[in-house]
Design a protein around this nucleic acid. Structure first.
Lengths: 148, 148
DNA sequence: ATCGAATCCCAGTTTTTCCCACTTATCCAC
DNA sequence: GTGGATAAGTGGGAAAAACTGGGATTCGAT
């Protein structure tokens, strides 16, 4: 279960230092790789490779005749890369993914249960800003009575 | 049942001293951890770990396709950290959570039944100010007949 | 074959975590 | 009311772990 937010610096070579407490859950002790891909909302997604498989299968089944579904498929499948952590627990983020997510030096790594989202600091702050000032559209049906 | 408001100081390392009378209820005598996460309104939430579980399950079920629901999930799950009190009954609040809630040195810990809200002193005063200055929308359906 | 680039590995430096000691407050007894 | 004892809050320090940066080697390309 991935949760928690960590601010992480990328070094000059584009390597992202994965915090220690997340390494084992991500790689199951180094036995599996991870998948890094792009999310339509402008962030990156980081999955343990086995957890990505069912998602990939779902996306692959999207109908090619639907414009929006095609866009999602192009992004989610097209940007996906299977990677491994280096000896120091770092992940080399390709220039293509860095450009897509407008990532420069600082990213926010945000747990989302099955996976992580990786946001540029600016992108993440935009999300928080949207939450604060967005006029709060209602939550979807069945969730209006959600109570903390 | 958590209630009451306590003003608490954080030390230079970001450690929050939990008042003694709250420690046992929060940790069931030290046997369980606590979960600290962020609330969309700009405060933090502090739950005994077992009490957080049902909330987490609800949030995890939010659909990824709904913009507002995604934002809530990003905040509630994304900031959640499972923690334990240190030997002196203090809770280390991560820099990410402190930044989100604009917490510097002083916080207000406000009981909310199942959990606590943790506000920066400024954030808490803003809430009280909002209540005082009016312009508030009416209470939602089903609560118009609320009576003290 | 030579140049360039990417990957892997090593070591210094910083950060984190845990524990101990001191100061302050509270409660009880005298 | 005063003094003492006990508990709580606060701060600091040392050991350990983790992050950062650089350097060397290998692979590929021209």
């Amino acid at each position: 279960m991935f949760q928690g937010a960590s601010q992480i610096n990328l070094d000059a070579k584009g390597r992202m230092a994965v915090p220690t407490r997340l390494r084992d859950p991500l790689t199951q002790g180094g036995t599996v790789g991870v998948v890094l891909t792009a999310h339509p909302d402008g962030c990156l997604l980081l999955y343990p490779a086995p957890a990505w498989e069912p998602v990939r299968a779902q996306v692959m089944a999207f109908p090619s005749t639907h414009a929006q579904a095609s866009l999602w498929k192009r992004v989610l499948i097209g940007f996906a890369e299977e990677l491994a952590l280096d000896g120091a627990g770092r992940l080399l983020v390709s220039p293509e993914l860095r450009t897509y997510a407008r990532i420069d030096k600082v990213v926010m790594n945000v747990g989302q249960g099955t996976h992580f989202e990786v946001w540029s600091l600016e992108g993440w702050n935009e999300q928080l800003e949207r939450l604060r000032s967005g006029g709060n559209p209602p939550l979807p049906p069945g969730m209006e009575n959600f109570s903390l």
